[in-house]
Simulated scan of single mutants.
Amino acid sequence: MGKTTTDELIDKAVKKAVKEFINDSKKKNRNAIKKRTRKLMSSYNSIKSHVDEGVSEVLDASIGFVREDLDEDDLYIMSIRRSRIRSMIMVAHIDKCLALLKAEEERKGTPEKYEVFISHYLEEKTYDDLSSAFSCSSKTAMRWVIELEGLISLYLYGVDGLSLD
Rank of each mutant, 00 (worst) to 15 (best):
M1C: 06
G2S: 14
T4S: 14
T4W: 15
T5Y: 05
T5S: 14
T5C: 09
T6F: 14
T6D: 13
T6K: 15
L9P: 03
K12A: 07
A13Y: 15
A13C: 09
K15L: 14
K19I: 04
I22D: 13
N23L: 07
S25L: 15
K27L: 08
K27I: 04
K28E: 11
A32Q: 11
I33L: 09
R38P: 03
R38E: 14
L40V: 13
L40I: 14
M41I: 07
M41V: 05
M41P: 03
S42Y: 00
Y44F: 14
Y44A: 02
N45Y: 07
S46W: 06
I47A: 04
I47C: 02
K48T: 03
H50C: 10
D52P: 03
G54I: 11
G54M: 12
S56K: 12
E57R: 05
V58P: 00
L59F: 15
D60Q: 10
D60L: 11
A61S: 10
S62M: 03
G64M: 10
E68W: 05
E68R: 06
L70E: 14
D71Q: 06
E72G: 04
L75H: 10
L75S: 12
Y76V: 00
S79D: 15
S79Y: 12
I80L: 12
S83M: 09
I85H: 10
M90Y: 00
M90E: 11
V91K: 03
V91A: 08
V91E: 00
D95G: 00
C97M: 07
A99Y: 02
A99Q: 06
A99D: 10
L100P: 00
K102W: 06
A103S: 12
A103R: 15
E104L: 15
E106T: 14
G109Y: 08
P111C: 06
K113R: 11
K113V: 01
K113D: 01
K113P: 01
Y114I: 03
E115T: 04
F117Y: 05
I118S: 09
I118K: 10
S119H: 10
S119I: 08
S119Y: 04
H120E: 07
Y121D: 03
L122H: 02
E123S: 06
E124Y: 04
K125D: 13
D129W: 13
L130N: 05
L130C: 04
S131W: 14
S131V: 09
S131C: 08
F134I: 07
S138F: 00
K139R: 13
K139N: 12
T140M: 09
A141D: 02
W144C: 02
L148G: 01
L148N: 01
L148R: 02
E149Y: 02
G150D: 10
G150P: 04
G150S: 07
I152F: 03
S153V: 01
Y155I: 01
Y155L: 04
G158K: 11
D160F: 00
D160M: 12
S163L: 01
D165L: 01
